Amino acid sequence: MLSEFDLIAKYFTKPVRNASLGIGDDCALLTPVPGTQLAISTDMLVSGTHFFADTDPRQLGHKSLAVNLSDLAAMGAEPVAFTLALSLPKPDEAWLKSFSEGMFSLANICHCELIGGDTTKGPLNICITVFGRIPLGQALRRDRAEYGDDIWVSGTIGDARLALAHCRNEITLDKQDFNAVSPRLHMPIPRIMLGMALRKNANSALDISDGLLGDLTHILDASGVGATLNTDSLPISPVLARQTEDWRMLCALTGGDDYELCFTAPPSKRSRVLEASARTGVPVTRIGFIENEPGLRLRNSHGEPVTFSRHSFDHFLAGSK
Rank of each mutant, 00 (worst) to 15 (best):
M44G: 10
L240P: 02
A53Q: 11
W95P: 01
G255H: 03
I171V: 15
H62G: 01
H302W: 10
L212C: 02
E291T: 15
P305V: 09
D257H: 14
R168K: 11
S105R: 09
I8K: 02
T228H: 05
V33D: 12
P135N: 07
G256R: 00
R297P: 04
L317Q: 11
D71R: 14
S3H: 09
M103T: 06
V153Y: 04
G303E: 08
C127E: 15
T36R: 10
D118S: 15
I171A: 09
A252Q: 00
C110N: 05
L69R: 04
L229Q: 01
S320M: 01
P57I: 03
P183I: 00
S271L: 12
E146D: 11
N108I: 12
F308L: 10
A318Q: 10
P305E: 07
I287K: 00
F52S: 06
D118Y: 12
F52I: 05
I189E: 07
A77M: 09
S320D: 02
L140F: 08
A81G: 12
D150S: 14
M44L: 14
A85G: 13
T307F: 14
A39Y: 07
S182Y: 15
T13V: 12
V80Y: 07
I151F: 05
L45F: 08
G158V: 03
L29V: 15
T307S: 15
L296G: 07
Y147C: 12
F52L: 12
W95Q: 04
A241P: 01
R144Y: 08
G132S: 13
A278N: 11
V16I: 14
A278S: 13
C112H: 01
G256E: 02
F131S: 06
H311E: 11
A66L: 04
H62S: 07
T55P: 00
I115C: 02
L7N: 06
A139V: 02
S182N: 13
K10G: 04
A73S: 13
R161A: 14
R270D: 11
S204Y: 03
V273R: 01
C251N: 14
L84V: 12
T42Y: 05
V273E: 00
A73L: 06
G35H: 06
F52T: 08
A265R: 04
G132M: 09
L38K: 09
S223M: 06
G226P: 08
G158W: 02
V284F: 02
R297N: 09
G132R: 08
H302G: 14
S98Q: 14
S271K: 10
K321H: 06
V153A: 01
E291K: 14
N68M: 05
E101K: 06
R142D: 07
M75I: 09
H311L: 12
T119A: 14
S154V: 04
L229M: 06
S320K: 00
I128S: 08
L96H: 07
E170T: 07
N18Y: 12
G22M: 05
P266W: 02
